[in-house]
Amino acid sequence: MIRDITLGQYYPGDSVMHRLDPRTKLLGTLVYLISLFLFTNSYVFVVAALFLGTCIVLSKVPLRHMLKGLKPVIFLLLFTAAMNLFFTKGTVLVSFWKIQITREGLLQAISMGTRLILLILGSNLMTLTTTPTRLTAGMEHLMKPLKLFFVPVHEIAMMMSIALRFIPILLEETDRIMKAQLARGADFESGNLLRRAKSMVPVLVPLFVSAFRRANDLAMAMEARCYHGGKGRTQYRPLRYKGRDLAAYVLLLLYFAAVIVSGKWLPGIADPWVKEMLETAKGLSVSMSETY
């Protein structure tokens, strides 16, 4: 049943990772993502993988469940790897028909693939250990400085949480309307694209009408409960940093330092292929700067 779709992908649990403040996790994820893109040498990936691995173990989310998160992006992953594999110029390793696989291409594909996998697992870990509500609250807090630039931060957060509340309801409603029209002989599957698009009108019109009716009802219900914007509002569960958050920030800082050390100074003592890869990367960045 559509009703049972849970938005986001929260994995219920009570681990250290679950209990961290959402702001810590949001900032941590941000730092982690940046760290993946700062350097291109493979030591960084080892450090990043170790760090992420530790976090996953701490979160007590089963690894299998984590890896499931890669499923939807597997196509993107293969596509990126293939693009890198076949279209990077350099020393030819294998060549058949019109396709050449170069040494640089191979390295590039591996490094891009690893980077993407780490990136997706990293951001998934955040959404798996944080409820949508806490995530919204965290974002609202972190975006607070934007208020200076007249960004309606509270309103954006309120909109997000209302959307999270109503998306399952509207999905269920879509299902119901589609069935009601099927019962009136509607056909959503046959015909060409235009015909199929047209056959959705009897679903979309009632859906919009209902969405507006619900919006109207909800606005009234909110007003009736004294809602008057973010001014003077207190919070039921305010976000408060705890000791563990401080520890997490320290660890994050250490991790970032390790990334910089391994990315910047380790190549000097590394084996030749890393050097070569670094050069390829340089060449790539030069060619990229030429194209742009």
Binding site: I162, L164, D217, A224
Partner: peptide, 13 residues
């Protein structure tokens, strides 16, 4: 005030 439609007046998730 409590309204008619149970779904349309609950704001919290």
């Amino acid at each position: 005030m409590v309204f008619q439609n149970p779904d349309n007046q609950i704001i919290g998730q």
